[in-house]
Computed example of a mutant assay.
Amino acid sequence: MVQIKTPEQIAKMREAGLVVAAVHEATRAAAVPGATTKDLDDIARKVLAEHGATSNFLGYGGFPATICTSVNEVVVHGIPRPDVVLKDGDIISVDAGAVVDGWHGDAAYTVFVGSGHAPELVELSRVTEESMWAGLAAVRNGNRLVDVSRAIETYIRRQPKPGGGKYGIIEDYGGHGIGTEMHMEPHLLNYVERRRGRGPRLVPGFCLAIEPMVSLGTPRTRVLDDDWTVVTTDGTWSSHWEHTIALTEEGPLVLTAPDGGRAKLAEYGVTTAPDPHPGS
Rank of each mutant, 00 (worst) to 15 (best):
L188H: 06
V231A: 03
A30W: 00
H176F: 10
G116R: 04
E25A: 15
S149W: 00
R28Y: 07
V223I: 15
Y173C: 04
P276G: 09
A107P: 03
G179R: 06
L202D: 06
A266W: 04
A273G: 13
G34S: 08
V230I: 15
T54M: 08
P278M: 08
D106L: 11
K38M: 15
E153M: 13
D101W: 00
H240Q: 12
G165E: 04
G261I: 06
L40S: 11
G164P: 09
I169V: 13
G199M: 10
F206H: 14
R262W: 01
T272G: 02
V85Q: 10
R28V: 12
N141W: 00
D147N: 11
E211S: 13
V148N: 04
K87G: 11
I245F: 00
D225W: 01
D90G: 12
T66Q: 07
T69S: 14
G174R: 02
G260W: 10
G168P: 09
K87R: 15
L208K: 06
Y167W: 15
R158F: 00
S280T: 14
E181D: 13
A257K: 13
S280I: 06
A151Q: 06
L216K: 09
L189I: 00
T272Y: 00
V270W: 04
G135P: 03
G114W: 02
G105T: 05
G116V: 03
V214W: 04
D225F: 01
H77P: 00
N72P: 09
L253F: 06
D106P: 01
S55N: 06
E181Y: 05
